[in-house]
Simulated assay, not measured.
Amino acid sequence: MKRILCILSLLFFITACDDGNLTVDVIDFSEVAAQKCSDKDVIYKVKDAEMLFIEIPASTFINDVTVEGEPIEVTINSTNKVTYRKYDGTVSSANICPTIPDATPNLKEQWNATSGIIQITSTAIKSTNSTDNSTRITGYTYNIVFKNITFQKPTGPQVYETFIFGNYVRNVDRLAFGFNEEVDKSTCVSDNRIFDFSVGEVFTLDVENYDTMFANEVTTTPRTALISSSNKLSYRLYSGTITNAYFCANTIPTIPTLLQQWNAIDGIEATSGIIEVSTTTLTTTTYQHTIRLKKVTLKKGNSEFSLGDDYLFGTLITN
């Protein structure tokens, strides 16, 4: 009788310990590179017979750097989806990207995320010119983490407080900077503004003390000024070709469209953000002003890049 009671007690104990608890399945894609479907807003990872993918608008991945400690946050819902799948064979992009995905291998199991937050932290990828120390942004890395995500499995829910999806890398076009060395001074705008343009690119320099900086006198040492609210440097990229007529219009034309604007960061005396102008004579009545930018950094939003130690803005001819 005692033996029977012990067996019953043991069975009760096992049942009580289970108490409906679910087996925790481990999925790990941390070492797998993320890819994006070319015709869908789907970012996915594949590992042998497993796939993990995110469906969120491409606009979520901004071309900018996120502030430290302030990632982009997207709530998981019927629009922003996270899904895990397991197949009976090796999978590829053909099982997720086409309008009609491949039917093989066969889907064995699917988990759908029902709640949680997608956190995205963005950093800039830069190339560096070792000769002049200039940098250019060539892309962005998006580190993706799921917070408090709940997957609904066939056997019930599974919750992760933190689930690291990993990095998704997106390339961007380098700014061309296809300017000529000779710049123009528009007769249509303020006398303090010098500009250069090449197709859809415009580089504008506004100098407060224009008459002093570009005086018709030969210099022995360059005249200098710091980038500031009074001495402004801006790079703009438009959707179409810019001509002098654009600057002459009474109101700013809506076409071509402004796509990007980068503004120079204020300079620091003898350190950075320095405008230098050297003047020589071409004829007895003609002067050539060579404008150089020393250690100037351009910024848009939270992203920035350097023009380098010594950037030739161009030459200006005056009479």
Rank of each mutant, 00 (worst) to 15 (best):
A176F: 03
T187C: 13
E182T: 00
I164G: 09
G166C: 14
S228D: 09
I252W: 12
P256C: 08
T162G: 00
E161N: 07
F197M: 04
P154H: 00
F179N: 02
I255P: 02
S198T: 01
F197Y: 11
T224I: 00
G240V: 09
L205M: 10
V159R: 03
T219C: 05
T251C: 04
I255W: 12
T243A: 06
L233Y: 09
A245L: 06
R223H: 03
K153N: 01
V202W: 08
T219R: 02
N244G: 08
F179P: 01
F203A: 01
I252A: 10
D266I: 01
S230A: 11
R174S: 10
A176D: 09
F165T: 07
S190I: 05
T220F: 11
T204N: 01
T212D: 07
I268V: 02
S239Y: 13
V189C: 13
K153Q: 05
D184H: 01
F163D: 05
S234A: 10
R223P: 09
R193A: 11
C188Y: 01
T204V: 14
M213Q: 05
Y238K: 06
D211W: 08
R170D: 11
S228P: 04
G267V: 14
N231L: 05
L233P: 10
V183D: 03
N192Y: 02
S230E: 12
M213S: 06
M213D: 06
L237G: 09
T241S: 10
R174A: 08
Y210M: 13
N180F: 03
D184M: 15
T155D: 02
T155C: 11
C248L: 13
R236E: 14
I252S: 14
F247A: 08
N180W: 09
L233A: 04
N209K: 09
V207F: 02
V183N: 01
R236S: 15
S234Q: 14
R174H: 00
E161C: 08
T241A: 04
L258G: 01
L205K: 03
D206K: 06
N167W: 13
D184P: 03
V189N: 12
V183M: 07
F179Q: 04
V199S: 02
E269A: 15
D211S: 13
L175I: 15
S229T: 03
D191V: 10
A264L: 15
N231G: 13
R170M: 10
N263D: 15
N244S: 09
Y235N: 00
D184C: 14
F177Y: 03
T224N: 08
L205E: 08
Y246G: 00
R170K: 13
V172W: 07
Q261Y: 06
S228R: 13
N216W: 05
I252F: 03
N171K: 12
E208S: 06
T241Q: 04
A245Y: 08
R170C: 04
S234W: 11
G267E: 11
T257K: 06
I255F: 07
A264C: 14
